[in-house]
Design a protein around this nucleic acid. Structure first.
Lengths: 223, 223
DNA sequence: TTGAGTTAGTTAGAAGCTCTAACTCAGGTT
DNA sequence: AACCTGAGTTAGAGCTTCTAACTAACTCAA
């Protein structure tokens, strides 16, 4: 079904151009100074014209966020497939590095996903799907390491919570615990790194990230 | 020197009222909808009047951030003093819980400190001082557990980087590594929690936080 | 007590923003 | 050839920050 009318093609193209301009602006001066007028000017049209393409400023922003989640999930999944034949520990390393590389290559986009949300914002369903896709990629290699139980109550909550949404998932409590734990640890390092909070401390955040991953792998391999 | 003129007292009071109103607004609708006009109205004056008190909207915002760093550092340090007699592991637990409690009691403030920064923003010096004060509180109990070396290059960078700024600090590389590692892990959990990213996963973030702290303590206690 | 100086707060206005409404005009369809 | 859809325009309401100029009140010193 690749039949798109001429109009639809042009429309899609303008949408992409507008989003690209928006990302440029966000990268340059932060999301708070994203201006529809300025985007319009960049595309050679007036501000209000963009309302034909997006549901206002907020609509554009949520679309950028949604795109980001999908893009990140794709990057992580691609790394997983590229390392499909490797040892479980190496698969985890590959996934984690893909996550961090995506973030530091475009910090403003990472912050769009995981920075300050506006109160009351509700992510659309397919966004949540993409977010869990990223997390899910880590579960298989973690499971292959056969982790033992540690925080039993937490693990039960995780297993039960997931079972609510997909009743016959294959993941054990410990696997899920290490999954979210890995997620929070990666986010902890990457988030502070892209926000510049390590500032003058004079160390390579990449090394800290690697150390955290190694620690996670060890925990996953210890029953 | 508690002699403040009447004018100074009134001035200080209006400043505090303005900041309180600002925090209320941020809590209600996010930092992006903080409006000087609205604050003025709440205080019973016009918007431009606030320019006598703050260096514009950005000035007010940086002041709120700075206050936040000091407040957080105070809270963590207070918890450290309250647990001064306890075992090192229990001191770490007390500090970590104080950190998380501060954050979840006022999520908007935590996000002000550790959420999306505006590009180019440079924190004033005393803000950085308060930020390191928070981190430093963890170093003493970590050191008491006598951690062994793990990621040697990283540890050397941390020790050298700190030596640049305070030449005769008492902290070993492993202690510093576990310090920033603890910071990133706490931030990883707390940040995703206050941003609502755990949303429908149906587990208690507090349990995850505790598990991360236990894992950190174990690492610190293993030579 | 009176006069001078400082400072808080005012209004007016420039420049920018989002967003709605009404209009024009070009492209595609019947 | 006539019609309709949809892209893009301008106009304008109602916000915003922020500057400039002015008033009024308070503080302090002679």
């Amino acid at each position: 079904m690749e039949t798109a009318t001429r109009r639809e093609r042009l429309r899609a193209q303008t949408r992409e151009e507008a989003k690209a301009a928006a990302l440029r602006q966000i990268a340059a001066a932060g999301p708070h100074s994203l201006s529809l007028n300025a985007i319009g000017k960049e595309l050679g049209m007036t501000g209000p014209a963009l309302y034909r393409y997006f549901d206002g400023r907020d609509g554009l922003l949520t679309e950028l966020i949604s795109d980001g989640y999908h893009d990140l999930a794709d990057a992580v999944e691609a790394a997983g497939e590229a390392a499909a034949g490797a040892e479980p520990a190496d698969r985890i390393r590959a996934l984690a590095r893909a996550f961090r590389n995506w973030a530091i290559a475009q910090p403003h986009r990472y912050l769009l996903l995981f920075g300050t949300p506006v109160p009351g914002y509700q992510a659309p369903a397919h966004t949540i799907e993409a977010a869990t896709r990223t997390l899910q990629a880590f579960l298989e290699p973690i499971a292959a390491l056969g982790p033992g139980s540690r925080a039993a109550v937490l693990e039960e909550q995780l297993a039960a919570g997931l079972a609510d949404r997909s009743p016959d998932h294959p993941w054990s409590g410990p696997v899920l615990r290490l999954g979210v734990s890995g997620w929070t640890r990666m986010h902890g390092v990457v988030s502070l790194e892209v926000e510049g909070h390590f500032g003058p401390m004079g160390f390579d955040p990449g090394l800290l990230f690697e150390a955290e991953i190694e620690s996670l792998i060890e925990e996953a391999a210890s029953s």
